[in-house]
Amino acid sequence: MDKKVISGYIKNITAIMVVYAIIFYLIQIKVINNYYNGILILAGIYIIVAASLNLATGYLGQLALGHAGFMAIGAYTAALFAIAVDLPKYVELVAGLILGGVVAGIFGLIIGIPALRLRGDYLGIVTLGFGEIIRIALLNLSFTGGAAGLKGIPRYVNFTEIYFLVVLVIAFLFAFIRSRHGRAILSIKEDEIAAESVGIPTTFYKVYGFVVSAFIAGVGGGALGFYQRILDPKKFNFMFSVEFFIIVVLGGMGSITGTILAALALAFINEFLYSIDELRLVIYALTLIILMIFKSDGLLGRKEFSLIKLLNRFSKKTKIENAD
């Protein structure tokens, strides 16, 4: 490891801790009240699930329209586990999230192996159908609480937990994408035939990327259950999947920071427009259409947003101006 890398790590970790400290302090002194705290936590969950979808759609290039299904599987698995066992809080939280992710990943494998042979729209349709089946199953099974929902889940997630979970997921995704595995995944989106012709086992990496995506969506779902304390199967419908899709597209397919910004923005815009709820979704939909027509690659495109780079550039600029 050279020095540049280490200093990069130090910068990132410092930035992460500083942001955490600031927000935590604002929550403590009630500048961020419970209401906004709640929005932040939901936004964090949205970031996790949308980032997982970005891996499948933005990086791997596979149209996935059923991520609410994976999320639901993770949510119910984690919640049922936590209800069933009696362990210390953080053990239950961590084990529950991992278990939720693993079960979602297994479903991703089961659906992915046959479905990923299909191209484009067809994969979208199969994942859509899968999501619907999961929702209907949750509505009808008795051990999941059926249509009444699953109640009595312990609240294990608050701002601190969700913040570090988001950091973990994002760090994982960055490290994963910027490796030989990530490059293999990117090459599949670019040109599957060319990827295969330079020695990438494309089928393996399609399934692999999809399973990792399902795993993370499951973890996000688990976090949702541990925050809301109740799971309503009706929530995990097609429109919910579409919401994540919208976040990914708005932020830019293939930009994780774009996903973060879009999820945060949408979470807050949604809440501000809540008072005019009837209009809210109309505005939302109109914005989406207009954005697609005029800037179809999303806000950031494939670029990543970096606070450090921005600061560097800014300081350079001022230096040059000063020199003049």
Binding site: R180, A184, L186, V198
Partner: peptide, 26 residues
């Protein structure tokens, strides 16, 4: 791989000669 850099195009072709795992990558 149109939207990737020239060097990434080459690096992808070296994929099969590399062996580090996902864990090592992460």
């Amino acid at each position: 791989f149109k939207e990737l850099s020239v060097i990434d195009n080459i690096k992808i072709a070296f994929h099969k000669d590399m062996s580090y795992s996902t864990v090592s990558a992460v």
